[in-house]
């Protein structure tokens, strides 16, 4: 299974913390999640930052990335204030 961890504003907005999902591309996984949680807005997941096993995945590459069994995915947003 792939562990998807929602942080910060995504966690607050959707009340989702950690979900285990079957492997696949992020696009496929998001489509499955969307069926389960119809209120998920794709724009939020386009704008957010994604880390897979501590490696940052760029915005453009994210939806085609294949997530494998055992991967740990963090979805969050940048902070830049001080």
């Amino acid at each position: 299974m792939v562990k998807i961890i929602f942080l910060n504003i995504l966690r607050s907005k959707y009340k989702l913390h950690e979900i285990d999902v079957a492997p696949g591309t992020f696009k496929e996984i998001f489509a499955r999640l969307k069926k389960q949680y119809p209120n998920l807005e794709e724009k939020d997941f386009q704008d957010c930052v994604m880390f897979v096993n501590d490696v940052r995945i760029t915005h453009l590459a994210r939806f085609d990335m294949i997530l494998k069994d055992g991967d740990r995915v963090i979805l969050t947003h940048f902070l830049g204030g001080g």
């Binding site: 910060n8 504003i9 607050s12 930052v49 940052r56 760029t58 947003h77 940048f78 902070l79 830049g80 204030g81 001080g82």
Partner: peptide
Amino acid sequence: IGGWYGQVGISLANSNLVKDYYQQATSGL
């Protein structure tokens, strides 16, 4: 910081922790 959220870390010289974390990002929450 931003809103309810924050982050901290220690970047050793030439680790580029901050640079590689943000990459091309220019602003946040």
